[in-house]
Design a protein around this nucleic acid. Sequence first.
DNA 1: TACCAGGTAAAAA
DNA 2: TTTTTACATGGT
Length: 292
Amino acid sequence: MKITCIGPYDFPLSWRFVTSFGGRAAEEAAISLWWAGKPTLVRIEQIDRRQPLMEIKSRPRAVQPKRFVEHMEEILNAHLALEPFYRRARKDPVLAPIVKAFRGLKPFRPPDLFQMMVTAITEQQISLAAARSIRERVVARFGAMVDDLPVFPRPADIADLSLNDLRECGLSGRKAEYIINLAGLMESGELDAEQWSALPDDELISLISSYRGFGQWTAEYILLRGLGRMDVVPAADIGIRKLIGFYFSEGKRLSEAEVRQVLEEWSPWRGLAVFYLFADYRMRKMGLDQAQ
DNA sequence: TACCAGGTAAAAA
DNA sequence: TTTTTACATGGT
């Protein structure tokens, strides 16, 4: 089963980037997700590094294969066109060397929206390391496993839990409420993301912000990371305020308004620009510059 | 030890 | 209306 993507796409580089955040350190690219009600492992390989063609090595047999390929295309951001952004970036002294070094790097999207939304809630206010540690406990207790890989719980796995079930994983009582409430909304169909794709960024941010526990930062974070809306930036984000300051303002931490101002010129790829800056910052920090 | 880390809603002023 | 506070864990 093959997926044709819009190139350039350096899949091994993109995979190394996501795995550099810890957790799994697998050589082989594998994604775990729910498909047709079962925890499922999907192995992915780029057939030829020079071509944007991925092969799904293992997959659920005969269950909506067409829909499955579409889903994988979303996860891999297969249809994201980097070249127009690169043309713009080459005119910028900061981004030019970065897009050259990381040519073909694409962000991956989480396999489902519930996972993304819960992840965003866990990452409110506390460090990413603390948030991950909490999430791992939630997944270990309420999720599933497939071939030693954890699968994030579904709304149905969470909706009927008690607050204490989640608090025991290290979540605050407030966040436990948000997550159980969210699970219930998704279970009942009251929150239906099918209609989200028709909405422009600003309207979708307003809609998501109307749910309890989801402020502007969280909504923007979900649009960028979860939905692949590459022009959106959660500019209030403490990490992004430092990141943009590092590259464009002599290292000082910027305000949200200053971040928005600096990034204005990168529309319609503001979020993608931030992703590349972050990739560079991270790889630089890790001393792992594998871009060559 | 204390403080900061990819915020938010609710209470207090 | 605007400002302040409580909240959870992990790293330094």
